[in-house]
Simulated assay, not measured.
Amino acid sequence: MDTRRIVITGGPGSGKTALINYLEKEGYPVMHEISRDVILEAQKEGIEQLFLENPILFSEKLLEGRLKQFHEGKNCAAPVLFYDRGMPDVTAYMDFVATHYPENFCETCNEYRYDEIFVLPPWEEIYEQDNERYESFEQAEKIFHFLKSGYENFGYKIHEVPVGTIKDRVEYILNHLKNTP
């Protein structure tokens, strides 16, 4: 049986990481978000906001890391594997900042496919800015729309996860997966 690759995505501060951590605590295999690692690595090199200073380099590092996660997913023996963001997030963010990117970004997104995409909508009550999350809530709302259209442009059907407790959100996702072959 092949492992189903499930992406959890959404704008900054929408609860993705909390949801992924909950799934992991419940025993599901997950691939964690790597953008904070890329940001922290750049900050150690003296680049405060790599995405703002060099969006192409930042995005190349993200795409490379997410492709590596995709390949690592081949070793998963579980029925499902959850990803905190997928490769099309990279192009969606580039579209958000209106920055042209190399064609290989789209080629990679088209070649390496996920099975289901769940997007979390903006949720102002839980939104917080921090050292790595510099976007305003209004920007997070715009990013959400770019993410939805970005995945749809790659031919994915998007499942919008309702706002609610982590347990309710996980239940929504798991029920959908249980009822979809």
Results as ranks from 00 to 15, higher is better:
Lys157Tyr: 07
Ala78Asn: 05
Glu125Asp: 14
Gly27Leu: 06
Glu45Tyr: 10
Val170Lys: 14
Leu50Gln: 11
Glu116Thr: 10
Asn21Tyr: 08
Asn179Thr: 07
Ile6Cys: 09
Ile126Leu: 10
Ser14Lys: 11
Phe51Ala: 06
Asp130Cys: 11
Pro121Asp: 06
Lys44Leu: 13
Ile34Asn: 07
Ile166Gln: 09
Tyr134Pro: 02
Trp123Met: 00
Val161Glu: 12
Phe154Ile: 00
Lys61Ile: 06
Phe137Trp: 11
Gln69Val: 02
Tyr83Asp: 02
Arg133Lys: 07
Ile166Phe: 06
Glu141Thr: 06
Arg133Thr: 03
Ile56Asp: 12
Val161Ala: 10
His159Tyr: 10
Gly65Asp: 07
Glu60Pro: 00
Leu50Ile: 11
His176Arg: 12
Gly15Asn: 02
Arg113His: 13
Arg85Lys: 13
Asn153Leu: 09
Thr91Ala: 09
Gly27His: 07
Ala77Val: 11
Lys44Tyr: 00
Leu62Trp: 05
Ser136Pro: 03
Ile126His: 04
Ala140Glu: 08
Lys148Thr: 11
Ser149Gly: 01
Ser136Gln: 12
Leu62Thr: 09
Lys68His: 13
Lys25Phe: 10
Ile158Gln: 06
Thr165Ile: 03
Thr165Lys: 03
Asn175Ala: 13
Lys44Gly: 12
Gly155Val: 07
Met87Pro: 06
Glu138Met: 07
Glu116Lys: 13
Tyr28Lys: 09
Leu177Cys: 12
Tyr22Cys: 06
Ser59Lys: 04
His145Pro: 01
Ile56Ser: 05
Val163Glu: 06
Leu177Ala: 13
Glu135Pro: 01
Glu103Ala: 14
Glu41Gly: 01
Val90Glu: 03
Leu40Phe: 13
Lys16Leu: 04
Ile158Pro: 00
Glu160Ile: 15
Ser35Leu: 12
Arg36Gln: 08
Glu33Phe: 07
Cys106Asp: 13
Thr180Ile: 14
Phe105Pro: 01
Gly46Trp: 02
Glu53Asp: 14
Phe70Trp: 15
Val119Phe: 02
Lys74Glu: 15
Glu24Tyr: 10
Glu132Gln: 11
Arg133Pro: 06
Leu177Pro: 01
Ile173Ala: 00
Arg169Trp: 08
Met31Val: 03
